[in-house]
Amino acid sequence: MLDDLLDFVPKIPISEGTKWFTDWLTSTFAFLFDPIKEHFGNFMNFTSDTLVSIPPVIIIIIVALIAFFISGKKFGLAAFSIVGLWLVYNQGFWDHLIDTLTLVILASVLSVIIGVPFGILMSKSRIAEAIISPILDFMQTMPAFVYLIPAVAFFGIGMVPGVFASLIFATPPTVRFTNLGIRQVSNELVEASEAFGSTGAQKLFKVELPMAKATIMAGINQTVMLALSMVVIASMIGAPGLGREVLSSLQRAQVGSGFVAGLGIVILAIIIDRITQNMNKRKKAS
């Protein structure tokens, strides 16, 4: 009797609908997805091939130099970079590291390129904020594995769907922090720029974005970290890199090599995190 009450409406075909929608997207936008898959895939391969062809010593030195100067000429981070990267090389994971790095950097750059304008839009319009905010919640709370399915449908397997899935997962912090940063700019400063006759664009580029820079950089740091955390998950759909090593170790229950590959990710994460954080600090100080 009571069950009938709940069964009043037959099962709503959400799953069928989603499948239908994804199929429709795939076939309708094949003209868009296929070239992206091909050209972007080529570009990524080219990037990682180029990086791999550079002798590791040189990359290690460059990273150490960046770390040294960006941390205000302190040796800590530089020393850590040298030892850490050497360790990865020593364990024979150098090429995987480069693949992972390529994936993380491209996914982050795309996230920023897409995220910052959306953040600006959100800060300028209450309606945009009301629409985008729940979408961001959705993007962040939906288990990341779920994105792999349409990613494969659109882009097949390999690096490109990996970047796509990372993009969805990693973009929200940049959008949110950009919005927050701009909204936090003191009202008097906004008034000042308006009182002198700024156009909307002048206000944005001369006052709001520079003032929000530190907050936006904190968001970008989060984005980069999230992109890195997608590396292992993306390896399930064939994205190369350290994640794939972790995954295959898991499948074969090889605790040793799994630990080493995981360690490689940790080292990369620490270096990237400290470097982006220091970029933020430098901006604040100047």
């Binding site: 008097e188 000042a192 009182a195 006052v207």
Partner: peptide, 10 residues
């Protein structure tokens, strides 16, 4: 032109 209470300098 306007001058503000808390200066509003950039």
């Amino acid at each position: 032109s306007m001058v503000f209470q808390n200066f509003a300098l950039f």
